[in-house]
Design a protein around this nucleic acid. Structure first.
Lengths: 124, 124, 124, 124
DNA sequence: GTGGTCTAGACCACA
DNA sequence: GTGGTCTAGACCACA
């Protein structure tokens, strides 16, 4: 479920954070279900527990999971997070249009790419 | 022309690279015109010359500038770079659509943002 | 009567202690009435008995309950505890004023909040 | 300037965070002035650099400082933070009033403590 | 030199 | 067992 890419320039803990965000936002991991323990995931990925700990702390800070001392870490409710993610995507789109205009990409060129992208329905 | 934002978390050399890319692609700096010397720009920005050197090396590697031993660094011809930049923007748009679909952003929501973005003609 | 909030970052035993303090101080639990046994409460809350034991020990240490060997745990007389609680609240108020002054909160701003708070008579 | 209290139950990194927050909010440390380096402060306090690093990361996350790779850590602008701190204090006051009412502390008892607190003008 | 990441391993409170 | 904190020490990119 989690794969570390050592060629990736991003730090390991960040890769773990992003992978869990994805699994959580897409509903692969259900609300209140338990994550692997810090130690177990560390063993499984052959990574230091401190690095996992750092990833989990960040996920908790961002509201993706909650940790209970002595019990474990659990998936948080995600409605709010999914909504936030959608807003981020639309913001990114808005920024990209701004950039496109600055470099002379026409509205036609741009919208063609968008429309084609939405046509391909089943690619994931 | 170049402003370093120390609160920006990106490294300084990267900020310089991006700023020059922008100035070159938008035609502010003309082809074959000379860039400030490493030393001068370092002095002007109160920055370590190593940092400027790194930025210039990166710009040369990307084809934005060329160096002439003993003479200095000069702006490269930019037609090819502008075309490449446009392609990058369209690729980014394509990737963003893919992401949008994965998180359930509808075609309507997405295109509305695009269309509105292109309406605001004169904001830069 | 007792509800554990696993998303609360405080330890479970502490949540239980505070909840009983509240129930006792507010007179919901009467003096000399018996508390549920460690085992029963543990079962009811689906919680480790050690955790309940720790909470009861803490409540006994603070004088909220007393244990009779072989019989169980009972609510202590509360007059003294209520008085102590009031003093704690007034001490906290005093500390807060000190802090307010340090950070430039004016007497007016502060007292306005207090007065408004006392106006809302029936909100619990 | 920074003193660690080993009898304090709070973690070391948290003590450091709170102490810096105080020094920054009270204006003892000016905007854009440099903090001691992670290594130096670690040496000075006889503490592991990782612990200082954790404190600085938290301060940066909260907007109290900003870190520049290769240069150091610096105090951020604090206007917004001071305002936020004041709001926190007033919120705490509001919560305390709520508690006071629940336990039968009268408005008179409460306001007397407040007024007396504001009288003592020069106690810090 | 400076911050940032990571490993290895210990100890703690809590459940 | 579980998360959280901390030490000791290494290595990296950046300035």
């Amino acid at each position: 479920m989690i794969v570390i890419d050592y060629k990736d320039r991003r730090p390991i803990y960040e890769q773990i954070v992003e992978r869990f965000q994805e699994l959580i936002l897409k509903g692969v991991l259900e609300a209140d279900s338990q994550l692997p323990s810090v130690r177990n995931l560390a063993m499984e990925l052959s990574i230091n527990p401190n690095t996992i700990q750092k990833a989990y702390s960040e996920l908790e800070r961002q509201g993706y999971i909650y940790s209970v001392m002595g019990k474990g870490s659990f998936i948080a409710v995600t409605d709010r997070l999914i909504k936030k993610k959608k807003e981020e995507i639309l913001d990114a789109a808005s920024q990209l249009v701004k950039l496109a205009k600055e470099y002379g990409v026409t509205k036609d060129e741009f919208t063609r790419v968008i429309i084609e992208g939405f046509k391909e329905e089943y690619d994931d």
